[in-house]
Design a protein around this nucleic acid. Structure first.
Lengths: 331, 331
DNA sequence: CTGAAAGCGCTTACAG
DNA sequence: CTGAAAGCGCTTACAG
């Protein structure tokens, strides 16, 4: 690989002049410039990105940490991130934590060592200190979906309203015994969805139908088992709101085994839909988020932050998306 | 960010000693070592990977190009890649192409400019020349799932046998009218699965049941429409083999709409299973690939290639995994 | 308009 | 066993 030095020698100038000519970073005499271009072309010169990165402290890479890609809204978001980053000529360094704080910590530590220009993260909420350190060290952080850390850039959705609206939607369809499956209560979207559910149920003077075990996890298995428990405790159950799709699949599966018809006996709606809902034997109604768009926005926000770093402290940015009801067979 | 220099100062030694101690690259007096470790810990020292990269000519980053993450075996493989890379202290630069050759080309060009030490790719088969150039320029390439380029490292599965075995499995269950849904015939796994199907059907003196449109795509929609066509042309159809899960979901959906019971009227099996099969109302039998392990192996192979680059031309490596039958309700 | 020099943060022969 | 020095390939004040 030809280096700046080779080009300089061939063009009979100093490396600094070559650098300035090639980067258009200050005026260089047209004749000199031409000679330099010719030399660079002849040698097939490509700048060494690592040297540039080291010198400029820029790597043109964005770190992304998400809990999971499988059957999760983060699959779509990651795709959106990837597309927008590519467009902006940034690379994406991806880490999946499986929701495990230890794995998340490891990823954060790896990424902070000069790997990335910005970090996009949906965190477990357990490494907030470390994340704040990273931001303080000059790497802009964008929280997506989960705004675990206040006063830090974030792109989220109106979870409370989503939970609230789902109840009213089911009520209007005739449901009166509406169960709710949550998730880890430390994670803000799960907490807020539940709050929306609570508010609506109070307004409608309906009793809350929940089981404690559902505030622990949100996998298919959790959905399955928690729905079973819900049904056991509240035999009149005629609707279930699940926080995410994978839970919803678990509920649908359970209902089939219990010979409950969906939606005739029990309606099911997921509060965080993505395409899977439409690909089932019984398609599932869901509140859907524009995942691709969220991903793209995250990259745009990240790059804005990178470019404006050094500006006197601007206030944190915040973007709120709205979930849209997509009616399918399960309601 | 603390640097080597900071650690050296705190530990009252030279930076070179710190480097040696931290990297275990030559003997350092235990006492000194201890002091260095303590200092590094106190300062929260993390090496600057870009500086290391520049010095060593290694970027400690692996490029990954896959067609899709959604409802695809590549989700699991990517996760495996990510895990192993993390373990080996490599970063992963991810690109999704959506199966689009133009997007793939763009990703390849971006990655080649000094970004990565190795490339792991499941290619569209349309950029083979470019991929070979990259390999020739000294960046090892590992093909996963799709060994589109002969005589180049690859990790694949025994697709032909998988197709063949699926037929015999269905035959033994009693099916005699076994349809097959393929995919883009330029892509080797799709081609080979079909060949396995053909071989078995010939052996059993059964007529092939296929529709031309199924050799174009493998999405849910393709599965749905192609199964409809299959059923229309062959009303006796009593089993469908699909190349991938998303197709399988489409078939299951169609069967429900057509009031065909699965598996009583029509059996369904997917040749490239991953967890989704177990999460459905009617769970789906599938030939399952060890996706995580494939991903991990790919990283290991990539790193071996990186470390052995410079060795006189070794022959390409090749790893073949076997799919395992996971029986569920759909058969 | 251009050169000489310093330095990004690290590793690694070379001495001693 | 450890230090001093050179250098990876680039950029950028600083002179002139």
């Amino acid at each position: 690989m030809a280096t700046l030095k080779d080009v300089a020698k061939l063009a009979c100038v100093d490396v600094s002049t070559v650098s300035r000519a090639l980067n258009n970073t200050s005026y260089v005499h047209p004749d000199t410039k031409e000679r330099i271009y010719a030399a660079a072309k002849e040698l097939g010169y490509h700048p060494n990105v690592m040297a540039q990165a080291l010198r400029q402290g820029k790597r043109h890479t964005i770190g992304v940490i998400v809990p999971s890609l499988f059957l999760s809204v983060f699959a779509g978001i990651t795709l959106g991130i990837e597309q927008e980053a590519q467009k902006q000529n940034y690379g994406v360094l991806l880490c999946c934590t499986s929701g495990d704080p230890a794995s998340e910590k490891e990823s954060l530590n790896r990424l902070r060592s000069g790997f990335i220009d910005a970090l996009i993260i949906a965190s477990t909420g357990r490494n907030s200190r470390l994340i704040q350190d990273i931001q303080a060290s000059g790497v802009p952080v964008i929280q997506i979906i989960r705004d675990q850390i206040p006063h830090m850039n974030s792109i989220v959705a109106d979870y409370e309203a989503t939970g609230y609206n789902a109840v009213h939607y089911l009520y209007q369809l005739g449901s009166r015994h509406i169960g709710f499956l949550g998730g880890n209560d430390r994670i803000i979207p799960f907490r807020n969805r539940y709050q929306g559910y609570q508010r609506a149920m109070q307004e409608l003077h309906l009793p809350e139908l929940t089981v404690p075990s559902s505030f622990v996890g949100h996998s298919f298995e959790h959905g399955y088992r928690d729905a079973k428990e819900l049904l056991f405790q509240f035999p009149d159950l005629d609707a279930v709101i699940t926080s995410v799709d994978s839970q919803g699949l678990g509920v649908m599966r359970l209902m089939k085994e219990q010979k409950k018809r969906v939606p005739e006996d029990v309606r099911v709606i997921s509060l965080t839909g993505h395409t899977i809902g439409g690909l089932l034997e019984t398609t599932m109604t869901a509140m859907e988020l524009p995942a691709l768009e969220i991903g793209r926005s995250a990259v745009q926000m990240a790059i804005e932050e990178i470019d404006s770093s050094g500006d006197s402290h601007t206030s944190p940015r915040r973007l709120v998306f709205h979930a849209e009801l997509v009616e399918r067979e399960s309601t």
